[in-house]
Design a binder for these strands. Structure first.
Length: 432
DNA sequence: CTTAGGATGACGTAGAGC
DNA sequence: GCTCTACGTCATCCTAAG
């Protein structure tokens, strides 16, 4: 906790006083709220002595730090202000269900340049999306389930300042049902398995032993098994996202099948010394390209000459692939991604697709401070779009061990997305 | 023999939707 | 009230390569 607060730019002294006064159970919002309240009552240059400031706030720290306090100070009202998920989860519309007369008004502070696009899991613990929204200019998140774009579910929230009118989907439209996506499975798909969509693609897959147990259970019957067996098999199939590949045979998705479902080119994550496990991990953590591309499609007419992209937590480059498939030229792409495996994947895709622009790698978002950003921005000449989906490990429902919310070890990197977005804005808006 | 990395299964719960 | 889902983690075992 102390580390997290320090990362936000608080001094050790501030933190220890706050932790003492708020008690051991206090959340990060309560703590920052306390520090904020105490400090806002003083003069800015008193409570922000320069040598206390963390390096990442260099350049714009005084303003930024105060702004951070102010955002933290705004409290959630859990009764009335909790963000609710839409049902159906189609955000501001999907290709098959275009909503009439969509409009939304963004707060002045949210209007670009640059455009930004933030993504994370929709079913995060309560209050997480309220906090995220609060930090990102109070923009209402757009919750979309990718099952409206492809044959697999993926419930995600997107906070962005893009227009929502005149969007268009990638063509060709991907198959919308499992049966269309996997024609060969039709022959083996039993009548009693009603699934038309797969569940969310995750980082772990069902084991070979499990599929063997399922086959053994089914082979004891000639025709359809009794309903009790049907139910238990279906439960496992849903839990592990298994598909039918032979008589009584189920199997987890292959990596290339996941690539297809998620909208990536086949073999996108293959080769170059990347293990199967790593492929599953990277794919499970990725964007669904068609969904993201639909949202980003409005940029095409705005930037006929191409865009400069800052891609945080790039992963296997979902945003880059989406923009490329939309036919939006990539001039300069600054990509920040911790995993070398993923950086290699993006680099290799970049070379294979003969990109004319520059791809610049960074490995650590936390090391991207004001100074570095100024260098990069003066080199590329400003960013048109900032994309990022910060780590979800501590938000995701499947995590039994450390579902700690936004304050979790990895998921707290969201605050770096906010920090960098804010830094870029102030550098770009500063008079030359 | 040692080591690295894949494979396996156990692990619990919040919160949405009905 | 009930059912269902979820960008996951860990210790341990197994296997192949060195």
């Amino acid at each position: 906790m102390l580390l997290l607060l320090a990362k936000m730019g608080y001094t050790v002294e501030e933190c220890s006083i706050a932790m003492e006064r708020c008690g051991p159970e206090a959340s990060v919002v309560e703590l920052t709220d306390f520090i904020c309240a105490a400090q806002l009552s003083r003069e800015a240059d008193v409570y922000l002595p320069d040598d206390d400031l963390k390096p990442r706030y260099n350049g714009v720290c005084k303003i930024k730090k105060r702004k951070f306090f102010e955002i933290c100070k705004k409290k959630n009202d859990p009764e009335t202000e909790t963000i609710r998920l839409p049902n159906p989860m189609i955000g501001f519309g999907v290709p098959s269900l275009q909503l009439e007369s969509i409009s939304r008004s963004l707060p002045d502070s949210a209007i670009g340049p640059p455009f930004f696009y933030y993504e994370n899991v929709a079913l995060a613990p309560k209050g997480v999306w309220d906090t995220i929204s609060r930090f990102l200019n109070d923009i209402e998140p757009e919750f979309v389930d990718s099952k409206y774009f492809c044959a697999t579910a993926r419930k995600r929230g997107y906070v962005h300042n893009l227009p929502v009118q005149n969007r268009f989907p990638l063509v060709p439209l991907p198959p919308l049902t499992v049966q269309q996506a996997f024609p060969l499975s039709r022959k083996w798909w039993p009548q009693w398995d009603p699934r038309e969509k797969l569940n969310c693609i995750q980082t772990a897959i069902g084991s070979a032993k499990l599929t063997e147990r399922i086959r053994n259970a089914l082979e004891r019957f000639d025709g359809d098994p009794p309903t009790s067996v049907q139910k238990s098999v279906l439960d496992e199939c849903r839990k592990w996202n298994l598909v039918w590949v032979g008589r009584n045979k189920v199997a987890p998705l292959e990596p290339d099948e996941m690539e297809m479902l998620l909208g990536f080119p086949k073999n996108h994550t293959r080769g170059g010394g990347i293990s199967r496990t790593d492929r599953y991990k990277s794919l499970g953590n990725s964007f669904q390209v068609d969904t993201v591309a639909y949202h980003l499609s409005v940029l095409k007419d705005m930037f006929p000459d191409g865009i400069n992209l800052l891609s945080l937590f790039s992963g296997i480059g979902g945003a880059e692939v989406a923009l490329h498939r939309l036919g939006i030229k990539l001039k300069n792409v600054v990509s920040v991604e911790k995993s070398k495996v993923n950086r290699d994947i993006v680099r290799s895709w970049w070379e294979q697709t003969n990109q004319a622009g520059n791809l610049i790698d960074f490995d650590d978002v936390q090391a991207l401070d004001g100074e570095r950003l100024e260098e990069v921005i003066s080199y590329v000449g400003g960013f048109d779009l900032i994309v990022g989906g910060s780590p979800c490990n501590n938000l995701a429902g499947s995590n039994r061990v450390s579902r700690d919310g936004l304050e979790g070890k990895e998921s707290s990197l969201f605050y770096d997305y906010f920090r960098i977005l804010d830094l870029v804005k102030s550098i770009m808006h500063r008079p030359a």
